[in-house]
Simulated scan of single mutants.
Amino acid sequence: MRALPILLLLALLTACGQPSVTAQESPTATPSEPSSTSTSGEEGGPGGIEPPPPFRVWHDGRELVLHPHTYCYGGGCVDGVNLDPPDVGSPEEIQVHVPVQEFALSVYAQELTREPRPDDPSFNATCGGRSFEVPVEDLGDGWYALRPAGPTALYDIQLFAQGGGDMIASLHWRTPFDGPAPEPSARLALIAEHDGEPDSYGLELAIDDLAQTPERVTAEITVTAGNGRSMTFAAEQTRDPCRSAGDLYFSRPDEPAKAAAALGDFPFTTTVTLTLDGRIHEATAVYPDDEIEGNEPSVALEFTPQLPGL
């Protein structure tokens, strides 16, 4: 998952129109009285754009007032990045208050594989680390609880609140123990529908959250149209040294994808044979029956045997 941290969140910023949102009053009941309070981020918005109220982050009896670096609020939008997020240490639980009534919280973690260097914006501390969505518990009154997820590590945590607008802030958290890990997942974008006819925008095969990145990988795709005509071709992996650990991505070749769409009419049955370090996994999906809502034209893939997870 996604990918999530800064890069994943850029794909999620779809609410930046002219939002109509209401600042939520601070609840009368808070998790506990803080022993200390600190503030991170800029309080005012650039160019006279009104920022939303800040997140309130509680951990270890302390409160952090965390101003968003990216937001759409009050009729304006600001895109930014915090190169030096505050570090909350290693609490077993973090509680976050979202100050806008219409916003709901999602949280994404990106493993920091090296110590950050805020003095060097080109330095990528997340290169090759795991990324995934962190489960949150809704406590009511705008409060949410976060607990460790995935392997114990130092993570860049992105707080993403949205609903008629959005606000994003970040912090660093070194989780004190392993938490639940996301299950491996896979999707394939190959066949699409355009004006009622089969089409293709190219190949995109994504495998996420494997236990580890395999050393040897092959993927073969067989496509069968509704008239029974079929073809088979090999997908080519797109290699990126900074891709999240446990994630695989195939985006070539496009020509067979176009040829597959010309085989006939719907439905199209696709079978993916994935070989990871010599072990074969196979999944079959039907387009458009298995199309993923919100991620069209991708179809979900369920492999047998199951993909290896953490």
Results as ranks from 00 to 15, higher is better:
Leu4His: 14
Leu13Gly: 04
Pro19Asp: 06
Ser20Gln: 15
Thr22Ile: 09
Ala23Asn: 13
Glu25Thr: 14
Ser38Arg: 15
Thr39Cys: 03
Pro53Ile: 08
Phe55Pro: 03
Arg56Glu: 11
His59Ala: 14
Gly61His: 05
Leu64Gln: 05
His69Phe: 09
Tyr73Ile: 03
Asp79Leu: 15
Val88Ser: 03
Gly89Val: 07
Val96Asn: 07
Val98Gln: 11
Ala104Val: 13
Leu105Tyr: 02
Leu105Arg: 01
Glu111Asp: 08
Leu112Phe: 07
Arg114Tyr: 09
Pro118Asp: 04
Asp120Pro: 01
Asn124Lys: 03
Gly129Thr: 04
Val136Cys: 12
Asp138His: 08
Leu139Asp: 07
Gly140Pro: 09
Trp143His: 13
Tyr144His: 14
Thr152Asn: 05
Ile157Ser: 06
Gly163Trp: 01
Gly163Val: 13
Asp166Val: 05
Trp173Met: 07
Trp173Leu: 05
Thr175His: 00
Ala181Lys: 05
Ala181Asp: 08
Ala181Gln: 08
Ser185Leu: 12
Ser185Thr: 14
Ala186Trp: 02
Ala189Phe: 00
Asp199Asn: 13
Leu203Ile: 05
Leu205Glu: 00
Ala211Asn: 11
Pro214Gly: 03
Thr218Gly: 06
Thr218Val: 10
Ile221Arg: 00
Thr222Asp: 03
Val223Glu: 06
Ala225Gln: 13
Gly226His: 10
Gly226Met: 07
Thr232Trp: 05
Phe233Trp: 15
Ala234His: 08
Glu236His: 08
Glu236Ile: 15
Ala245Asn: 10
Ala245Lys: 11
Phe250Val: 08
Lys258Thr: 09
Ala261Trp: 00
Phe268Arg: 01
Leu276Lys: 10
Leu301His: 02
Leu310Pro: 14
